[in-house]
Computed example of a mutant assay.
Amino acid sequence: MDANTRAAVELCEDVLRGDYQYNAEHRILGSTNRLIESLLGRSHELADAYVELRDGLSADSEALKYFFEMYTTAVTSWSPQKIKKAREDKEELTELNVRIAKVSEMLSELLSRRTEVKERSSFTCDTYYHIVDVVEGASEENGLFSSYLKGKLEGLAYQYDLKYWAAISAVVAQIGFDAANAVTVARDSTAIAATEARRPGLADFLKAFEATLDKNRVENNGLIPDEFSLSDSSMASLVNCGIGLRVEDLVDASFVKRYRQRERDRTKRERPVSGD
Results as ranks from 00 to 15, higher is better:
Val239Met: 07
Leu238Gln: 03
Arg27Ser: 13
Ala24Thr: 01
Asn33Trp: 04
Arg258Val: 07
Ala236Val: 05
Ala47Glu: 02
Glu154Met: 07
Ser274Arg: 15
Ser61Ile: 06
Leu156Met: 14
Leu29Lys: 03
Thr94Ile: 11
Asp60Lys: 03
Arg269Thr: 11
Ser38Glu: 08
Leu35Ile: 08
Asn23Leu: 07
Ala191Gly: 15
Lys150Asp: 05
Arg262Ile: 00
Ser189Asn: 13
Asp249Ala: 06
Val98Ala: 09
Ser77Phe: 05
Val15Tyr: 00
Asp214His: 12
Lys268Ser: 08
Asn142Tyr: 00
Pro200Arg: 07
Ala7Val: 02
Glu10Ser: 11
Leu206Asn: 08
Ser38Lys: 13
Val98Leu: 12
Asp161His: 13
Leu223Gln: 12
Ala8Gly: 07
Ile28His: 14
Leu35Thr: 00
Ser189Phe: 03
Tyr71Glu: 08
Glu119Cys: 06
Leu156Ser: 04
Arg17Asn: 06
Asp249Pro: 03
Asp249Glu: 09
Ile131Ser: 02
Ala7Ser: 12
Glu109Trp: 11
Asp249Leu: 01
Asp126His: 12
Val183Met: 14
Ala194Asp: 05
Val183Phe: 04
Arg264Trp: 00
Gly151Ile: 01
Asn240Thr: 08
Ala211Phe: 02
Ala74His: 05
Asp161Phe: 10
Val15Asp: 06
Leu53Lys: 05
Leu213Gly: 01
Phe145Leu: 00
Ser77Lys: 11
Ile168Gly: 06
Glu45Cys: 05
Glu196Cys: 07
Ala24Leu: 05
Val98Trp: 09
Leu57Thr: 13
Glu10Asn: 10
Ala208Glu: 10
Gly275Lys: 13
Glu119Phe: 11
Asp232Glu: 00
Ala157Leu: 06
